Amino acid sequence: RYRTTFTSYQLEELERAFQKTHYPDVFTREELAMRLDLTEARVQVWFQNRRAKWRK
């Protein structure tokens, strides 16, 4: 599977959502995914990776 490349707008929005909550529920993820034209799975994985980065 190829690596997803996020646009700067998508990253800004994902980071903004991350500032609000590190653990968005499925509705929040679905809403973000639709708004950013991504799949909910991509959003979920982004948050997993972002939390890992945050913990370091």
Rank of each mutant, 00 (worst) to 15 (best):
Y9L: 13
Y2S: 14
Y2W: 09
Q19R: 06
F27S: 15
E12K: 06
R42N: 15
R50Y: 02
T28L: 11
A41H: 06
R3C: 13
L14T: 00
T21C: 13
Q44K: 13
R55Q: 07
R1L: 10
W46I: 00
L11S: 09
P24S: 02
F6S: 04
H22S: 11
D37Q: 14
R42F: 11
L36K: 01
T21V: 09
F27K: 13
D25R: 02
W46P: 00
D37N: 14
A41E: 10
W46M: 02
T28I: 03
E15A: 02
F6A: 05
A17K: 06
Y2G: 15
T28F: 11
T39P: 12
T4D: 14
H22D: 10
E12T: 11
Q19S: 13
Q19K: 08
R55Y: 05
L38I: 13
L32G: 00
V45L: 12
E13T: 06
A33V: 04
D37S: 14
L11G: 06
R3G: 03
R42H: 14
W54C: 11
E12A: 06
F27D: 13
Y9M: 07
A17E: 14
H22I: 13
T21I: 06
E40D: 07
T7M: 03
L32Q: 00
R35E: 05
Y23P: 01
W46T: 02
H22M: 12
R1T: 14
W46F: 04
K20D: 07
R1W: 04
D25E: 05
T39F: 03
R29L: 12
E30D: 12
T28G: 06
E13M: 10
F18P: 01
F18A: 02
Y23W: 05
F47R: 00
N49L: 06
K53P: 03
T4Q: 04
D37F: 07
K56P: 10
D25Y: 04
L14R: 01
F6C: 10
Y9V: 13
T4M: 11
W54N: 12
T7H: 04
E12G: 12
V43P: 01
F47P: 01
R35Q: 04
W54V: 03
L14F: 03
N49T: 14
T7Q: 05
R35G: 06
E12C: 07
V26F: 14
Y23F: 05
Y2P: 05
R55P: 09
Q19D: 14
R3V: 08
T7C: 06
T28A: 08
W54A: 13
E31T: 14
Q48I: 03
D25C: 09
L36H: 02
L36N: 04
W54H: 09
Q44C: 11
H22T: 09
R50C: 03
Y2D: 15
T4E: 14
R29Y: 11
D37V: 10
Q44P: 00
Q19M: 07
Q44R: 06
T21M: 11
R50W: 02
V43F: 01
W54I: 14
L11P: 04
F18S: 03
S8T: 11
L36E: 01
R50D: 01
D37T: 14
A52Y: 09
K20A: 05
R55N: 13
K20E: 05
Q48P: 02
L14K: 00
F27I: 14
E40N: 09
T4W: 07
Y2N: 15
A17S: 13
E12M: 06
E12H: 06
F27P: 14
S8E: 12
Q19V: 09
P24G: 00
Q48N: 02
F47W: 03
F27W: 03
R16C: 05
L36M: 05
H22K: 05
T28N: 09
E31S: 14
T28D: 04
T28R: 09
F18Y: 03
F18K: 00
Q48C: 06
L36Q: 00
T4G: 06
T7S: 08
E13Q: 10
A17W: 04
E15F: 01
T39G: 07
R50E: 12
W54Y: 12
F27H: 14
T4P: 09
K56A: 11
V45E: 12
E15S: 04
R3H: 15
E30S: 10
Q10E: 11
F47G: 00
W46V: 02
Y2E: 15
L14N: 03
R1V: 05
E15T: 03
F18M: 01
E31A: 12
R42C: 12
L11D: 15
A17M: 07
V43Q: 00
R35K: 13
A33I: 05
E13D: 04
Y2K: 09
F47Q: 02
Y2T: 13
R35N: 12
V45P: 01
E15D: 04
R51A: 05
K56V: 08
R35W: 04
Q10G: 01
L14G: 00
F47T: 03
